[in-house]
Amino acid sequence: MQSEQTSARASGVDRDIAQLPQVAHSRNPGMDLDMNWVRAVQANTSAIERRCASLPGRRSVKKDHQAAWLLKAITMIDLTTLAGDDTPGRVRRLCAKAAHPVRPEIMTALGVDEITTGAVCVYHDMIATAVDTLDHLGVNLPVAAVSTGFPAGLSPYHLRVEEIRESARAGASEIDIVISRRHVLTGNWQALYDEMRDFREACGDAHVKAILATGELGSLRNVARASLVCMMAGADFIKTSTGKESVNATLPVSLVMIRAIRDYYEATGYRVGYKPAGGISKAKDAITYLALIKEELGDDWLTPDLFRFGASSLLGDIERQLEHHVTGHYSATYRHPMG
Protein backbone atom coordinates (compact mmCIF):
# COMPACT_ATOMS: atom_id res chain seq x y z
CA MET A 1 0.00 0.00 0.00
CA GLN A 2 2.70 2.35 1.09
CA SER A 3 4.88 1.67 -1.89
CA GLU A 4 2.02 2.19 -4.32
CA GLN A 5 1.32 5.55 -2.84
CA THR A 6 4.94 6.50 -2.94
CA SER A 7 5.24 5.66 -6.59
CA ALA A 8 1.96 7.41 -7.37
CA ARG A 9 3.30 10.54 -5.75
CA ALA A 10 6.53 10.30 -7.61
CA SER A 11 4.56 10.50 -10.80
CA GLY A 12 3.09 13.81 -9.68
CA VAL A 13 -0.39 13.00 -8.41
CA ASP A 14 -2.19 15.84 -6.60
CA ARG A 15 -0.70 15.83 -3.12
CA ASP A 16 -3.91 16.97 -1.45
CA ILE A 17 -5.55 13.60 -1.69
CA ALA A 18 -2.74 11.11 -1.43
CA GLN A 19 -1.98 9.52 1.93
CA LEU A 20 -4.03 11.95 3.87
CA PRO A 21 -5.57 10.70 7.04
CA GLN A 22 -8.70 8.68 6.40
CA VAL A 23 -8.15 8.41 2.71
CA ALA A 24 -9.75 4.99 2.94
CA HIS A 25 -12.59 6.14 5.18
CA SER A 26 -15.16 8.87 5.00
CA ARG A 27 -14.10 11.89 6.94
CA ASN A 28 -15.75 12.51 10.32
CA PRO A 29 -18.33 15.25 9.67
CA GLY A 30 -18.97 15.76 13.38
CA MET A 31 -22.37 15.96 15.00
CA ASP A 32 -24.36 18.17 17.33
CA LEU A 33 -22.94 18.56 20.79
CA ASP A 34 -24.57 15.84 22.89
CA MET A 35 -24.15 16.97 26.48
CA ASN A 36 -25.93 13.92 27.92
CA TRP A 37 -23.28 11.73 26.39
CA VAL A 38 -20.45 14.01 27.45
CA ARG A 39 -21.66 14.17 31.05
CA ALA A 40 -22.17 10.41 31.30
CA VAL A 41 -18.54 9.69 30.47
CA GLN A 42 -16.58 7.97 33.23
CA ALA A 43 -12.92 7.10 33.50
CA ASN A 44 -11.69 5.14 36.48
CA THR A 45 -8.05 6.05 36.82
CA SER A 46 -6.89 3.09 38.88
CA ALA A 47 -8.55 0.55 36.62
CA ILE A 48 -7.18 2.25 33.52
CA GLU A 49 -3.70 2.25 34.99
CA ARG A 50 -3.98 -1.45 35.83
CA ARG A 51 -5.00 -2.30 32.28
CA CYS A 52 -2.06 -0.33 30.94
CA ALA A 53 0.37 -1.84 33.42
CA SER A 54 -0.58 -5.39 32.48
CA LEU A 55 -0.70 -4.86 28.73
CA PRO A 56 3.05 -5.11 28.00
CA GLY A 57 3.03 -8.44 29.86
CA ARG A 58 0.00 -9.66 27.95
CA ARG A 59 1.28 -9.04 24.46
CA SER A 60 4.74 -9.78 23.24
CA VAL A 61 5.89 -9.52 19.62
CA LYS A 62 9.07 -11.34 18.67
CA LYS A 63 11.50 -11.86 15.79
CA ASP A 64 10.11 -11.27 12.28
CA HIS A 65 6.87 -10.08 13.77
CA GLN A 66 8.70 -7.52 15.83
CA ALA A 67 10.57 -6.28 12.78
CA ALA A 68 7.36 -5.98 10.80
CA TRP A 69 5.63 -4.13 13.62
CA LEU A 70 8.54 -1.73 13.93
CA LEU A 71 8.46 -1.01 10.22
CA LYS A 72 4.76 -0.35 10.55
CA ALA A 73 5.49 2.00 13.42
CA ILE A 74 7.87 3.99 11.21
CA THR A 75 5.15 4.53 8.63
CA MET A 76 3.06 6.05 11.40
CA ILE A 77 5.61 8.53 12.68
CA ASP A 78 4.96 12.22 12.19
CA LEU A 79 8.64 13.06 12.12
CA THR A 80 8.72 16.30 13.98
CA THR A 81 10.79 19.36 14.59
CA LEU A 82 9.20 22.14 16.60
CA ALA A 83 12.02 24.23 17.94
CA GLY A 84 12.71 27.92 18.02
CA ASP A 85 16.00 27.37 16.23
CA ASP A 86 14.53 25.49 13.27
CA THR A 87 16.02 26.65 9.99
CA PRO A 88 15.35 25.63 6.39
CA GLY A 89 18.45 23.49 6.50
CA ARG A 90 17.26 21.65 9.57
CA VAL A 91 13.85 21.06 8.02
CA ARG A 92 15.38 19.82 4.77
CA ARG A 93 17.41 17.29 6.72
CA LEU A 94 14.27 16.14 8.53
CA CYS A 95 12.39 15.73 5.26
CA ALA A 96 15.20 13.68 3.77
CA LYS A 97 15.07 11.37 6.76
CA ALA A 98 11.29 11.09 6.49
CA ALA A 99 11.61 10.11 2.86
CA HIS A 100 14.23 7.45 3.57
CA PRO A 101 13.90 6.52 7.21
CA VAL A 102 15.83 3.25 7.17
CA ARG A 103 19.13 2.35 5.55
CA PRO A 104 18.44 0.56 2.26
CA GLU A 105 20.54 -2.51 3.01
CA ILE A 106 18.49 -3.13 6.13
CA MET A 107 15.30 -2.87 4.10
CA THR A 108 16.72 -5.28 1.57
CA ALA A 109 17.70 -7.73 4.26
CA LEU A 110 14.17 -7.56 5.65
CA GLY A 111 12.76 -8.15 2.18
CA VAL A 112 10.42 -5.19 2.21
CA ASP A 113 9.88 -2.25 -0.12
CA GLU A 114 10.96 1.17 0.87
CA ILE A 115 8.77 3.04 3.30
CA THR A 116 8.41 6.60 4.49
CA THR A 117 7.33 8.06 7.76
CA GLY A 118 3.70 9.10 8.10
CA ALA A 119 4.34 12.82 7.71
CA VAL A 120 6.66 15.57 8.72
CA CYS A 121 5.43 17.99 11.30
CA VAL A 122 6.70 21.59 11.50
CA TYR A 123 5.78 25.15 12.49
CA HIS A 124 3.96 27.35 9.98
CA ASP A 125 7.04 29.16 8.71
CA MET A 126 8.66 25.88 7.74
CA ILE A 127 5.74 24.52 5.70
CA ALA A 128 6.96 25.85 2.37
CA THR A 129 10.43 24.49 2.93
CA ALA A 130 9.06 21.09 3.84
CA VAL A 131 6.67 20.93 0.90
CA ASP A 132 9.37 21.99 -1.54
CA THR A 133 11.91 19.57 -0.13
CA LEU A 134 9.55 16.62 -0.26
CA ASP A 135 8.53 17.50 -3.81
CA HIS A 136 12.16 17.74 -4.72
CA LEU A 137 12.81 14.33 -3.15
CA GLY A 138 9.94 12.94 -5.18
CA VAL A 139 7.98 11.64 -2.23
CA ASN A 140 4.45 12.66 -1.56
CA LEU A 141 4.49 12.89 2.18
CA PRO A 142 1.94 15.06 3.93
CA VAL A 143 3.24 18.08 5.76
CA ALA A 144 1.57 18.70 9.06
CA ALA A 145 1.70 22.12 10.67
CA VAL A 146 1.06 22.93 14.27
CA SER A 147 -1.24 25.87 14.52
CA THR A 148 -3.61 28.08 16.53
CA GLY A 149 -0.95 29.67 18.67
CA PHE A 150 0.80 26.39 19.39
CA PRO A 151 1.61 25.32 22.06
CA ALA A 152 -0.44 27.47 24.51
CA GLY A 153 -3.26 28.47 22.16
CA LEU A 154 -3.74 31.82 23.82
CA SER A 155 -3.21 34.20 20.92
CA PRO A 156 -6.18 36.26 19.65
CA TYR A 157 -8.92 33.97 18.46
CA HIS A 158 -9.25 35.44 14.99
CA LEU A 159 -5.52 35.09 14.50
CA ARG A 160 -5.64 31.47 15.52
CA VAL A 161 -8.33 30.78 12.95
CA GLU A 162 -6.44 32.77 10.37
CA GLU A 163 -3.24 30.88 11.14
CA ILE A 164 -4.98 27.67 10.12
CA ARG A 165 -6.04 29.20 6.82
CA GLU A 166 -2.53 30.52 6.18
CA SER A 167 -1.00 27.14 6.89
CA ALA A 168 -3.45 25.37 4.62
CA ARG A 169 -2.70 27.87 1.89
CA ALA A 170 1.02 27.32 2.42
CA GLY A 171 0.56 23.65 1.59
CA ALA A 172 0.03 21.93 4.90
CA SER A 173 -2.39 19.08 4.41
CA GLU A 174 -2.69 18.35 8.09
CA ILE A 175 -3.22 20.96 10.76
CA ASP A 176 -2.47 20.11 14.39
CA ILE A 177 -4.50 22.60 16.40
CA VAL A 178 -4.36 23.14 20.15
CA ILE A 179 -7.58 23.42 22.08
CA SER A 180 -8.24 26.04 24.73
CA ARG A 181 -7.53 24.07 27.88
CA ARG A 182 -9.44 26.62 29.93
CA HIS A 183 -12.69 25.53 28.28
CA VAL A 184 -12.12 22.03 29.60
CA LEU A 185 -10.94 23.15 33.00
CA THR A 186 -13.99 25.36 33.45
CA GLY A 187 -16.38 22.80 32.00
CA ASN A 188 -17.36 25.08 29.14
CA TRP A 189 -17.95 22.27 26.65
CA GLN A 190 -20.02 24.42 24.33
CA ALA A 191 -17.12 26.83 23.93
CA LEU A 192 -14.76 23.96 23.22
CA TYR A 193 -17.19 22.56 20.67
CA ASP A 194 -17.63 25.92 18.94
CA GLU A 195 -13.90 26.53 18.82
CA MET A 196 -13.22 23.11 17.36
CA ARG A 197 -16.00 23.62 14.80
CA ASP A 198 -14.40 26.90 13.71
CA PHE A 199 -10.97 25.30 13.47
CA ARG A 200 -12.29 22.42 11.46
CA GLU A 201 -14.07 24.78 9.11
CA ALA A 202 -10.92 26.86 8.66
CA CYS A 203 -8.96 23.75 7.72
CA GLY A 204 -11.01 23.19 4.60
CA ASP A 205 -9.71 20.04 2.94
CA ALA A 206 -6.74 19.80 5.25
CA HIS A 207 -7.30 17.27 7.99
CA VAL A 208 -7.39 18.49 11.52
CA LYS A 209 -5.77 16.93 14.53
CA ALA A 210 -7.03 18.23 17.86
CA ILE A 211 -4.26 18.47 20.44
CA LEU A 212 -5.85 18.16 23.86
CA ALA A 213 -2.70 18.85 25.91
CA THR A 214 -3.82 16.08 28.22
CA GLY A 215 -1.08 16.82 30.71
CA GLU A 216 -2.91 20.04 31.50
CA LEU A 217 -6.47 18.76 31.71
CA GLY A 218 -6.34 17.60 35.31
CA SER A 219 -8.11 14.25 35.07
CA LEU A 220 -8.69 11.33 32.78
CA ARG A 221 -12.41 12.08 32.87
CA ASN A 222 -11.67 15.50 31.42
CA VAL A 223 -9.53 13.85 28.77
CA ALA A 224 -12.41 11.55 27.84
CA ARG A 225 -14.90 14.41 27.69
CA ALA A 226 -12.62 16.69 25.70
CA SER A 227 -11.95 13.82 23.27
CA LEU A 228 -15.64 13.32 22.70
CA VAL A 229 -16.43 17.01 22.28
CA CYS A 230 -13.64 17.44 19.73
CA MET A 231 -14.87 14.43 17.77
CA MET A 232 -18.42 15.76 17.87
CA ALA A 233 -17.06 19.01 16.45
CA GLY A 234 -15.46 17.16 13.55
CA ALA A 235 -11.86 16.40 14.50
CA ASP A 236 -10.19 13.95 12.10
CA PHE A 237 -7.62 12.98 14.70
CA ILE A 238 -7.33 13.52 18.41
CA LYS A 239 -3.84 13.96 19.73
CA THR A 240 -2.50 13.90 23.25
CA SER A 241 0.01 16.65 23.56
CA THR A 242 2.08 19.40 22.10
CA GLY A 243 5.23 17.78 23.41
CA LYS A 244 5.75 20.95 25.43
CA GLU A 245 3.71 19.99 28.51
CA SER A 246 5.53 18.46 31.45
CA VAL A 247 3.54 15.22 30.95
CA ASN A 248 2.91 14.16 27.38
CA ALA A 249 1.62 10.91 25.90
CA THR A 250 1.06 8.14 28.42
CA LEU A 251 -0.61 4.77 28.08
CA PRO A 252 -3.48 5.62 30.46
CA VAL A 253 -4.28 8.81 28.56
CA SER A 254 -4.08 6.86 25.32
CA LEU A 255 -6.44 4.18 26.61
CA VAL A 256 -9.00 6.82 27.59
CA MET A 257 -8.77 8.57 24.24
CA ILE A 258 -8.99 5.45 22.11
CA ARG A 259 -11.92 4.17 24.14
CA ALA A 260 -13.61 7.49 23.37
CA ILE A 261 -12.78 6.95 19.69
CA ARG A 262 -14.31 3.48 19.88
CA ASP A 263 -17.49 4.77 21.50
CA TYR A 264 -17.73 7.52 18.90
CA TYR A 265 -17.29 5.02 16.08
CA GLU A 266 -19.93 2.72 17.55
CA ALA A 267 -22.37 5.61 17.84
CA THR A 268 -21.70 7.34 14.51
CA GLY A 269 -19.89 4.91 12.24
CA TYR A 270 -17.01 7.37 11.74
CA ARG A 271 -13.45 6.41 12.51
CA VAL A 272 -11.39 9.12 14.12
CA GLY A 273 -7.63 8.80 14.22
CA TYR A 274 -5.35 8.88 17.24
CA LYS A 275 -1.94 10.45 17.70
CA PRO A 276 0.04 10.12 20.90
CA ALA A 277 2.80 12.72 20.94
CA GLY A 278 5.78 13.37 23.14
CA GLY A 279 7.65 10.96 25.34
CA ILE A 280 7.57 7.93 23.05
CA SER A 281 11.19 7.31 22.25
CA LYS A 282 11.76 3.55 22.51
CA ALA A 283 10.96 0.83 19.99
CA LYS A 284 9.48 -1.26 22.77
CA ASP A 285 7.08 1.55 23.68
CA ALA A 286 5.99 1.79 20.06
CA ILE A 287 5.13 -1.92 20.06
CA THR A 288 3.14 -1.50 23.25
CA TYR A 289 1.18 1.37 21.70
CA LEU A 290 0.44 -0.65 18.59
CA ALA A 291 -0.72 -3.57 20.74
CA LEU A 292 -2.96 -1.20 22.68
CA ILE A 293 -4.51 0.02 19.44
CA LYS A 294 -4.90 -3.51 18.11
CA GLU A 295 -6.55 -4.67 21.34
CA GLU A 296 -8.86 -1.75 21.99
CA LEU A 297 -9.64 -0.42 18.50
CA GLY A 298 -8.77 -3.30 16.22
CA ASP A 299 -6.66 -3.78 13.12
CA ASP A 300 -8.61 -1.12 11.18
CA TRP A 301 -6.75 1.51 13.12
CA LEU A 302 -3.29 0.05 12.46
CA THR A 303 -2.72 2.32 9.51
CA PRO A 304 -1.18 5.78 9.13
CA ASP A 305 -4.63 6.95 8.09
CA LEU A 306 -5.80 6.46 11.63
CA PHE A 307 -2.77 6.26 13.85
CA ARG A 308 0.35 8.40 14.14
CA PHE A 309 3.18 8.78 16.56
CA GLY A 310 4.27 12.35 17.21
CA ALA A 311 7.93 11.67 17.84
CA SER A 312 11.42 12.83 17.00
CA SER A 313 13.80 10.35 18.60
CA LEU A 314 11.68 7.17 18.26
CA LEU A 315 12.88 6.51 14.74
CA GLY A 316 16.51 6.26 15.82
CA ASP A 317 15.77 3.56 18.36
CA ILE A 318 13.69 1.58 15.88
CA GLU A 319 16.51 1.74 13.33
CA ARG A 320 18.91 0.23 15.83
CA GLN A 321 16.46 -2.54 16.69
CA LEU A 322 15.98 -3.33 13.02
CA GLU A 323 19.71 -3.58 12.44
CA HIS A 324 19.94 -5.89 15.43
CA HIS A 325 17.20 -8.01 13.92
CA VAL A 326 19.05 -8.24 10.63
CA THR A 327 22.59 -8.77 11.94
CA GLY A 328 22.03 -10.37 15.33
CA HIS A 329 24.27 -7.72 16.86
CA TYR A 330 23.28 -4.70 18.88
CA SER A 331 23.64 -1.51 16.92
CA ALA A 332 25.00 1.99 17.57
CA THR A 333 23.33 5.32 16.96
CA TYR A 334 26.00 6.69 14.64
CA ARG A 335 25.46 3.83 12.20
CA HIS A 336 22.14 5.39 11.13
CA PRO A 337 21.74 8.64 9.21
CA MET A 338 20.54 11.48 11.42
CA GLY A 339 17.27 13.23 10.79
Binding site: D64, H65, A68, V112
Partner: peptide
Protein backbone atom coordinates in the same frame (compact mmCIF):
# COMPACT_ATOMS: atom_id res chain seq x y z
CA UNK B 1 5.13 -15.51 6.96
CA UNK B 2 7.55 -12.96 5.60
CA UNK B 3 8.16 -9.62 7.23
CA UNK B 4 6.38 -8.06 4.29
CA UNK B 5 3.28 -10.19 4.90
CA UNK B 6 3.30 -9.55 8.62
CA UNK B 7 3.61 -5.84 7.86
CA UNK B 8 0.21 -6.09 6.18
CA UNK B 9 -1.55 -8.45 8.59
CA UNK B 10 -0.03 -7.13 11.83
CA UNK B 11 -0.42 -10.51 13.50
CA UNK B 12 1.14 -11.17 16.88
CA UNK B 13 2.91 -14.38 15.95
CA UNK B 14 4.37 -16.70 18.53
CA UNK B 15 6.23 -15.57 21.61
CA UNK B 16 7.00 -18.77 23.46
Amino acid sequence: MTVKEIFDTMDYGLAP
